[in-house]
């Protein structure tokens, strides 16, 4: 109780807007979800007002969980997921964060493969303009006897302005020996030649950027119950940045 607010020395908060966190402190306890063995759970998180979402999910034996996140609103927005996978469970995250101005947006995940044969996949796309900061810290921990773990992290960020910042840190902590963990991480800018090609065919610069960014985030919300809502909200936000 009454733990003091985190500081930048806390790894999971190192890029956070500490004054915003302090103002929100103490946080409510994380929402805790238990997905029973063999169950299927799905959740959409649309962070559009500048808030901190913390979710703890324990995924039972053979159960599945799909989380889709669109992190776009407020000066400071944080989505934190703490996932524990039991035997043969599956976790999927599809997340997009889009920030401009002075926004600070973060997606922080800890995915623990506690037992064998569980699978996890995380796709995170960030688009950042102005002096916005977008952070993904994703730790995948594989317990000693969690053999045949299969884990993927695909993390990409697109910077629309040189003044924007992307922090991306996929992290692996593996204590089992028969595991497959893949992670890729790329931070880039829109392809200038591609933009010129679109413009040379008559598309105005802002629309050309929007078309390419739409392609950049495409697919992340595939299969979400709220796919259309998420896609529309993402496109609207992209339209505000270009």
């Amino acid at each position: 109780m009454n733990r003091s607010a985190p500081t930048r020395h806390d790894e999971a908060w190192r890029y956070s807007d500490i004054s915003a966190v302090e103002a929100a402190w103490p946080l409510a306890a994380p929402e805790s979800i238990i997905v029973p063995a063999g169950g299927n759970f799905a959740r959409t998180i649309l962070q559009d007002a500048g808030s901190i979402h913390q979710l703890d999910i324990a995924i039972g034996k053979g159960a599945t969980t799909a989380i889709h996140v669109l992190n776009i609103g407020g000066d400071y927005g944080r989505v934190e997921l703490n996932i524990t996978l039991h035997e043969g469970a599956d976790f999927k995250l599809g997340a997009v964060q889009i920030g401009g101005g002075t926004q600070n947006l973060e997606i922080i995940t800890t995915v623990t493969h506690a037992e064998p044969k569980a699978t996890s996949s995380q796709i995170v796309r960030s688009v950042l303009a102005g002096t916005a900061i977008g952070t993904y810290l994703g730790k995948v921990a594989v317990a000693r006897d969690a053999q045949l773990t299969d884990s993927v992290q695909s993390v990409k960020a697109m910077l629309l302005d040189r003044s924007a910042t992307a922090n991306a840190k996929p992290e692996l902590e593996i204590y089992a020996d028969d595991v497959k963990c893949a992670h890729g991480c790329a931070i880039g800018e829109l392809d200038a030649m591609g933009l010129f090609y679109l413009q040379a065919r008559g598309i105005a610069p802002a629309d050309a950027k929007k078309l390419m960014l739409q392609a950049f985030v495409a697919g992340v919300f595939d299969g979400a119950a709220d796919e259309e809502m998420l896609t529309d909200a993402a496109l609207k936000k992209l339209g505000e940045l270009v």
Binding site: D191, Y197, M212
Partner: peptide
Amino acid sequence: PVEIPGVSNVQFLREALNAQ
């Protein structure tokens, strides 16, 4: 000619023609 991953020819050309 430039490759534009994720954007279909049809979408690109319709948008280009209508923009013009």
